[in-house]
């Protein structure tokens, strides 16, 4: 682990260099302890795959004091903090997988040498972990996608990906909470609202997510828009 200054009011804590699902619980434990123990000094924290960005309030604290506050917290988070794989909230997200809304479903299947049915089964058979939130409000980066259907980002991003679109980029998957530009391969659409001003984000880093295939009728019944 290392703590590096990256700007005048933030430090980046590195927990490792490689994508490793075991890092997530340690990063989130550090985030929670920093929030509770250093409270008022902290403006924001951004947990990611292997790092935690901590933004502090220069009106209240400087770099040295922040590092002196963070070091003992990190020392208390050793390898033992890793939670077993099945810990974390489990959230089920229904998905209407169909070329009508899965704009790249056929292309993903063709690239993988699979049928569309196979792609759907393989995408919805895995229970994913939310590694990090980012890109847009409520957007969760999830892994790990079955290698057989992992598909690189599109060379030209779409200007407009519809809200609810479920995408794949390499071994990551995610749901676009609102309309936005995006380069992920879209294989279906989810009717669940992922972000609202009242509840904020449905997903949080550390959650587990299972996708369940639903029909066109169920999608519409659950408020999905075609």
């Amino acid at each position: 682990m290392s703590i590096e200054p990256v700007s005048e009011d933030s430090v980046l804590i590195r927990f490792g260099d490689q994508l490793d699902e075991q890092l997530t619980p340690r990063i989130l434990a550090a985030q929670a302890r920093i929030a509770s123990q250093l409270g008022d000094w902290i403006i924001d924290q951004v947990p990611a795959y292997t790092t935690l960005l901590v933004v502090y309030d220069l009106h209240k604290v400087d770099f040295r004091r922040v590092v002196a506050g963070i070091e003992p917290i990190l020392a208390g988070i050793d390898e033992g903090t890793s939670a077993p794989r099945d810990k974390g909230r489990l959230i089920e997200l229904p998905v209407y997988y169909h070329p009508e809304v899965g704009l790249d479903l056929e292309a993903v299947a063709e690239r993988a040498g699979l049928t569309i049915e196979d792609v759907i089964v393989r995408h919805s058979a895995t229970t994913y972990r939310v590694f990090a939130m980012g890109f847009a409000p409520g957007f969760g980066f999830m892994g790990t996608v079955d290698p057989s259907i992992a598909t690189p980002r599109k060379s030209t991003p779409r200007q407009r990906v519809p809200a609810g679109s479920v995408g794949i980029a390499n071994q990551q998957t995610a749901v676009y909470p609102s309309v936005s530009p995006g380069g992920w391969n879209i294989i279906g659409r989810c009717p669940t609202q992922l972000f609202s001003l009242e509840r904020l984000s449905l997903l949080q880093a550390g959650d587990r997510v299972a996708f369940r295939a639903i029909s066109r009728d169920e999608f519409v019944d659950q408020g999905g828009e075609l």
Binding site: Q45, P47, V55, M133, P137, P177, L200
Partner: peptide, 12 residues
């Protein structure tokens, strides 16, 4: 700017 929103993907 916002405080404690970036971990939900909210811009500052």
């Amino acid at each position: 700017g916002r405080r404690h929103g970036q971990h939900l993907g909210l811009a500052v």
